[in-house]
Write a protein that binds this DNA or RNA. Structure first.
Lengths: 186, 186
DNA sequence: GTCTATACAGTGATAGAC
DNA sequence: GTCTATCACTGTATAGAC
C-alpha cells in the first residue's frame, strides 16, 4: 500500500502496526519498507539510528497518546471518579480493539525487547497504575485495585489473542470495571 | 555452559530457556548451540525439521507438564475444591517464579509466533480454563471466574516483568486466589 | 527526500568427515 | 552422534546518484 509521506511522523502509524505484528526482531527493513512505502534511504533519513530509533519513536507516540487520552482524563478532578473509570475502560477497549490489537508495551515487557526499551515499558505501566489509583478516590486498597485492573487488561489481551476471541476481552474487562466502580460506592 | 546430552529430551529445558528469553525469531541457531552445548549437526540430528520442531517439542513438554501438574490436579475430585485451587496458585507461582519467568504460551499468543503455533496456544488456555472451572464447583459464574483467573495470571506476569518486580505477581495472584476461594464458600 | 547499488555480517540449513 | 565447512539467502546499514 502506497502512502503519502511528507514528514517523519507520517510513518509512525505504519511503523506501530509493523512492530505490533512482527515484534522488534521480526520487523525486518524489508517489511518496514513495504508497509511504509518508503525505501531504506528515506527511512534512514528520518531515523538515522535505524530500527531502534523507529521503535523508540513509536513507543513515544503510543505513550503520548495514552498520556493525553487515558492517564490525564483519569486525573481530571472535575469529572466524577466513576465516570473517569468507565471512560478509561471504554477508551482502552476501543484502542485495543477488544484484544484484537495488542499492547506494544505489554508485548515488549514479555519479549527480549525489554532489554532495549525497559525504561519506557516501566514508565508506561507505572503511570497508568498511578493515574488509575488517583481516580479510585476513597476506595479501599486503591493501589491494589489499580494494579489488578492494569494487569487484568493485559491478561485480557493475552487471552483473547490466544483464543482469537474478542469476547474474552470484553467479559474480563467488564468484570474489572464493575469491581472498580463497586469499590467507589461501598 | 557444557551439558551432558544423551538423547533429544535432554535438550528441552535449555531450548525452553532460549525460546523464553529470545522468542522464536530471536533464538538464532548460534544462541541455541551455545545454550545447549550442541553443534548444528547434533541439533538437526535430533530435530530434522530444525527450529520449528525444536519449538514444537518445547511447547509439547510445557503443555504436558501443566497437564499433569496443574490441569489434572484441578480435576481431582478426591481433593476439596478449595485446596485444589490453592494448589494451582502455588504451583503456578513456583513455575513462573513469581513472574520472573514468562509463560511461553502467553508470549507466543502476543507475538508473531501465534501464526505458527496458534493451535497449541489455544489448547493450552482452553484446557487451563476448563480445568479451573471444574474445580469451581458450585460457584456462581464459574466460567467467568475461571477465565478471569487465567487471564489475571497472564497479566500478572506481564506487569511484574514490565516493572521488574516479582511482588506485583504475588499481590495480583493472591487477590485472584482469595476471590476464587471466596466464591466457593458463599 | 528518495531511490538503487552495494557491503558484509549473520541467518537457517545441508553435506560429509570422523 | 558430533563436528566443521559450506551453501544460498536475508539481515542491517551505508554510499552516492538524482
Amino acid at each position: 500500500m502506497a502512502r503519502q509521506v511528507a514528514e517523519r511522523s507520517d510513518t509512525i502509524p505504519a511503523l506501530a502496526n509493523v512492530f505490533r505484528t512482527y515484534g522488534f526482531d521480526g520487523a525486518s527493513l524489508a517489511v518496514i519498507t513495504e508497509h511504509t512505502g518508503l525505501g531504506k534511504g528515506s527511512l534512514y533519513n528520518f531515523f538515522p539510528r535505524g530500527k531502534e530509533e523507529m521503535a523508540e519513536a513509536v513507543l513515544d507516540e503510543v505513550d503520548g497518546w495514552f498520556r493525553s487520552e487515558v492517564f490525564e482524563p483519569l486525573r481530571a478532578e472535575s469529572v466524577p471518579p466513576r465516570q473517569r473509570i468507565q471512560s478509561m475502560f471504554a477508551t482502552a477497549g476501543d484502542y485495543f480493539r477488544s484484544g484484537q490489537r495488542i499492547c506494544l508495551f505489554g508485548a515488549f515487557a514479555l519479549g527480549e525487547e525489554r532489554n532495549r526499551f525497559g525504561a519506557r515499558v516501566r514508565t508506561y505501566f507505572d503511570e497508568w497504575t498511578a493515574a488509575l489509583e488517583a481516580a479510585l478516590v476513597g476506595a479501599e486498597d486503591s493501589i491494589g485495585l489499580a494494579e489488578e485492573a492494569v494487569a487484568g487488561i493485559q491478561g485480557a489481551i493475552v487471552m483473547s489473542r490466544a483464543l482469537d476471541d474478542g469476547a474474552v476481552y470484553s467479559r474480563v474487562t467488564t468484570r474489572l470495571e464493575d469491581r472498580l466502580v463497586q469499590a467507589l460506592t461501598p
